[in-house]
């Protein structure tokens, strides 16, 4: 092969501008055995690449691989009914959650209905006499407590009066 073409291709190669065909051309040239002495430093590189492409797995790999794949395949087939059961159990889970939500919703609605009944409209006593007594009791309780409070408040007014007196005397 024309060695000036190899020069050109090599230059392109180092710049990373060669096409795959051109790279193959280089590899073929350096493997041909008729390499010019000035390429002696570069030739081993291309021969290395060519050699590297021959590295491979041992010949028994295929058999082992296929045996393995067939094994996983049979496992899968065996598992198929299991998958269906799994699907149903998933559906059952969803259904159970749905049921709980519906039941809970029903009870919550019942509770809300109870709350809607306004408390001051419902009667607590049937007998008006009894109701009157109860009301009286309640009012008495309130008035008793109210009076207690007023007693305490009276003390404060004495203080106020005293303060007023002191003020007026000071002004005099």
């Amino acid at each position: 092969m024309d060695s000036s073409r190899i020069d050109k291709l090599l230059e392109k190669y180092w710049e990373g501008e060669t096409s795959l065909e051109e790279e193959k051309e280089l590899k073929d040239y350096f493997a041909s055995g008729e390499v010019e002495a000035r390429f002696n430093s570069v030739a081993p590189l291309f021969n290395y690449y060519k050699e590297e492409a021959n590295v491979g797995l041992d010949t028994f790999f295929d058999e082992r691989m296929i045996a393995k794949l067939e094994k996983t395949e049979t496992k899968r087939k065996v598992q198929k009914p299991g998958r269906m059961v799994e699907l149903f159990s998933n559906i059952a889970k969803v259904a159970a959650v749905g049921l709980i939500v519906i039941v809970a919703g029903y009870f919550i609605r019942q509770e809300m209905k109870k709350d809607e009944i306004k408390p001051y409209l419902t009667d607590t006593f049937d007998d008006p006499q009894k109701a009157f007594e109860e009301t009286k009791k309640a009012l008495e309780l309130i008035s008793r407590n109210f009076n207690k409070g007023r007693k305490e408040a009276k003390k404060i007014t004495t203080f106020n009066e005293a303060q007023e007196k002191v003020k007026s005397e000071n002004q005099l």
Partner: peptide, 17 residues
């Protein structure tokens, strides 16, 4: 470096590797 190699490499090629 190369377990199932068909051809032995010379030293230069090994160095390149």
């Amino acid at each position: 470096l190369t377990p199932y190699r068909t051809v032995e490499m010379d030293d230069t090629m090994k160095n390149i590797g």
